[in-house]
Write a protein that binds this DNA or RNA. Structure first.
Length: 322
DNA sequence: TACACTGACCGCCATA
DNA sequence: ATTATGGCGGTCAGTG
């Protein structure tokens, strides 16, 4: 029987709420997609109670001295503007928790300027960290023992994880998720979150994500290139399995494991993605349907609508010639 | 609308 | 004992 990992956020008055919410979305989405309680989110502050964040929204937090970080815990400090940050850096309760975490927890880390709190607790000496680009100079000056990487989205060094700007907390959370539960679940969560955040009707993020996935998995590298090149003819899952020399059942299982989606769905996504380009070039719907391997225009229309949320006609009118 | 057909998916189970 | 594999068959959705 597995035990849920705890993700413990250390927050404080005036902190950046997005630093907390973004990574939380990754972990809670992982729970939902996997259908298991893989992670439990815990919010804690020096004194507990309602914590008012920089945007004015308050969150209920547990007192930090009721939290005993252990082997299944990840402790993350959120960032803030300079004034609330300085107050957090002075908090002995927060520092005490972090010092316990560095010994006992599975991981500890920071989002954005939360790295300053880690540094104040003396935990970043000799470490390489990522922090917000505007704060790297300041961090180097205050803590010369700490090496700041101004380019990285996030940095992982042993059990220490640090991330740059607010939204890179999401990238870091995805990387943590991958190290815990593999690339498949990570990809599924990333896709889910991207789909929610993209502008309706345009999904360039989606194709970037596909490209990234393809690069990541050498086992299927040849296959995905082949599929990408043959989107106008229909390739059955059985033929894909044959192409990589696996039985259909094993192929299906391994594919889902690596990509977080079934082979047929992945292939359909590739074809629909190509369809976007034809539509942007102004090609007729019937022609596009044929070009990307759909038997009929109506089948294509239905698949496109269900995948992107808009009809191909509306998509073409919106994005043609851009 | 009813129907048969097909491919994809996935749980299950024997086996390596 | 544990894990990956691969075949079987039931269910489902899409198609003509």
């Amino acid at each position: 029987m597995f035990k849920a990992r705890r993700i413990i956020f250390l927050t404080y008055s005036g902190a950046e709420l997005l630093d907390l919410i973004g990574p939380s979305a990754v972990f809670s989405t992982a729970n939902r997609i996997s259908g298991k309680a893989l992670y439990r989110i815990v919010v804690t502050s020096a004194d507990g109670g309602e914590v008012v964040h920089s945007c004015g929204i308050s969150i209920a937090a547990l007192p930090v001295d009721e939290i005993y970080p252990g082997a299944a815990d990840t402790v993350l400090v959120v960032g803030a503007d300079s004034r609330p940050l300085v107050a957090a850096m002075a908090s002995t309760a927060l520092k005490k928790c972090l010092k316990t975490a560095v010994i006992r927890a599975e991981r500890l880390g920071s989002i954005c300027s939360g790295a300053f709190v880690l540094a104040a607790a003396g935990l970043l000496n000799g470490k390489t960290v990522a922090t917000h680009w505007s704060a790297t100079m300041q961090l180097s000056r205050l803590y010369p023992e700490t090496n700041c990487n101004g380019d990285a989205l996030y940095v992982n060094q042993g059990k220490l994880w640090t991330s740059a700007g607010v939204t890179t907390g999401i990238d870091m959370a995805l990387a943590i998720l991958q190290s815990d539960h593999g690339a498949g679940l990570k990809a599924a969560v990333a896709r889910q979150l991207v789909v929610y955040s993209h502008r309706p009707g345009h999904q360039s993020q989606f194709s970037d994500l596909l490209a990234a996935q393809v690069k990541e998995d050498e086992q299927f590298a040849g296959l995905t290139t082949w599929l990408q090149q043959s989107t106008s003819t229909i390739i059955s899952v059985e033929r894909m399995a044959d192409h990589v020399g696996m039985s259909p059942r094993t192929f299906h299982r391994r594919f889902v494991n690596s990509f977080g989606q079934t082979p047929a769905k992945f292939y359909e996504a590739l074809r629909l993605n190509n369809a976007r380009e034809f539509l942007e070039a102004g090609m007729s719907i019937a022609n596009v349907a044929c070009q990307v391997g759909f038997q009929s225009e109506s089948a294509f229309r239905a698949a496109f609508k269900s995948h992107f949320g808009v009809t191909p006609r509306l998509y073409r009118e919106t994005w043609r010639g851009r």
